[in-house]
């Protein structure tokens, strides 16, 4: 079943269109940076973007920073919202279930498919970022590759830090996906599930910025989203990254549990 879901994912035009659009924005930004040579002032604009001019090797990280706040969660929420509700809306859910595919198995396969999509999207953005960064912005410019602390980064350093960043952002997005996946088992409308997931994110973002919500702040899903920046500090600050990974794991476990409890005994009327 997992194989079937992955094949469905890969053969679906929408998968590639959405990933293509995700990759397009960093490319456009890179083109403007390369043509005009005007970098945002440090401390303004997306993190790390200031450092990429003339230094394309940092661009994968900057590219992910560009799509992380907005486009990536939308793409992932839409994908996850599709998972069960999309099958229901297309009328294929009932045929899968009478094939028969166990409901729990279907859910697991959907989860794997969503995780695969997320990783695919994040890796695609990082790879596009690398290619555009190196070709458009060059690798030897006026700025050397440094950490936020100003120490030099070797290519190997940069590679593993970017790798961990890809995994971390990927896992954060799986947290997003689990919200929409749960909603997707509640409703037959994929759009509602996706928007519901985004609504949770927006609420979380608002609460994180609110000092009055300090008591619950550390448990909100978006609290540690930007912790990937810590990977580019020297020494790497693992604390928030670990906390972020744990918080996301908590959400994934609880929401998937709820999705399972709901879906396994729910009437399928569509």
């Amino acid at each position: 079943m997992i194989g079937v879901e992955l094949r469905k994912l890969l053969r679906r035009p929408r998968t590639w269109v959405s990933i293509g659009l995700l990759c397009l924005l960093p490319v456009v930004v890179a083109v403007f940076l390369a043509v005009t040579g005007i970098a945002p002032r440090p401390g303004q604009g997306p993190t790390l973007l200031a450092a990429v001019l003339g230094n394309g090797a940092l661009y994968p990280a900057a590219a992910l920073g560009i799509v992380l706040p907005f486009f990536l969660p939308i793409a992932v929420a839409v994908q996850a919202g599709e998972a069960v509700a999309g099958e229901a809306a297309a009328g294929t859910l009932r045929y899968l279930l009478v094939r028969p595919v166990g409901r729990t198995r279907l859910l697991v396969a959907k989860l794997v498919s969503v995780i695969a999509y997320t990783l695919l999207a994040v890796v695609a953005v990082a790879a596009t970022g690398y290619v555009t960064g190196v070709t458009l912005l060059g690798t030897s410019g006026q700025l050397a590759t440094t950490t936020l602390a100003g120490t030099a980064l070797t290519p190997a350093d940069l590679a593993w830090r970017t790798g961990v960043m890809v995994l971390y952002i990927g896992w954060s997005m799986v947290g997003v996906a689990s919200v929409s996946l749960f909603l997707s088992t509640l409703t037959d409308s994929p759009l509602a599930a996706a928007l519901g997931g985004l609504a949770v994110l927006v609420s979380s973002t608002v609460l994180v910025a609110l000092d009055a919500a300090g008591a619950v702040r550390d448990y909100l899903p978006t609290r540690y989203w930007l912790a990937w920046v810590d990977l580019f500090r020297d020494p790497v600050a693992w604390q928030d990254i670990q906390a972020g990974a744990l918080v996301q794991t908590g959400y994934v476990v609880v929401l998937l549990g709820a999705a399972w409890a709901n879906f396994a005994t729910r009437d399928v009327t569509n």
Partner: peptide, 21 residues
């Protein structure tokens, strides 16, 4: 009524459905 993935051919649809079971 029938249900199928609209972007796939009949054969591809049947292949996926059969592999799912």
């Amino acid at each position: 009524g029938p249900g199928a993935y609209p972007h796939l051919s009949a054969r591809a649809n049947l292949r996926l459905l059969d592999a799912a079971g």
